[in-house]
Amino acid sequence: MAFFVKLIDYGSIMTVENNNMNFFEGDKNNPFLVPPGYFAESRAQIMQKIAKEGAISSVKEFKIRTRLLWMSGIAASLLIGLLLFQNMYLKPHRSIKLAQEIDWFINYTGSDLNDVTLASYFADEGISIEDPYDEVLDSERASLLEMTDYDELFIIEEWMNIENQNK
């Protein structure tokens, strides 16, 4: 076998030429081959892939941007919807309910509607009487306050404080 012949020829498995260790003569010659024109072709292939990668990443970027736009659009629509729902359904609905409640309260108390009953109602409902004409106060509740003499509100307030303390 050529392999053993070479071994015998060299006497030793290793040779040193110009300070370079070799196992055999010529073993550092590259035994691997590549198809003709491989490197140029491979370069072109890699550059093509890179261009595609670039295109893919810009498509990805575009997709992400579009998705973000869609998401913010949906969020804005939801917010607008919620506000509309609050203003056009919840608030009027609540006002009607309050008006009904007040009607019921007035009917229920009847002739007993006085400072004390009113004060306990306000305290129960957590209605502030500091400024009955405050815009924040429901118009229905304000109208209830208007049923009392404005000067008497201070008496009511005192009653409310006592009611609150008792709670």
Binding site: A2, F3, K6, F24, G26, D27, N29, P31, L33, V34
Partner: peptide, 8 residues
Amino acid sequence: YFDGDEIQ
């Protein structure tokens, strides 16, 4: 694409 001899 391998062109080595027996030793290689």
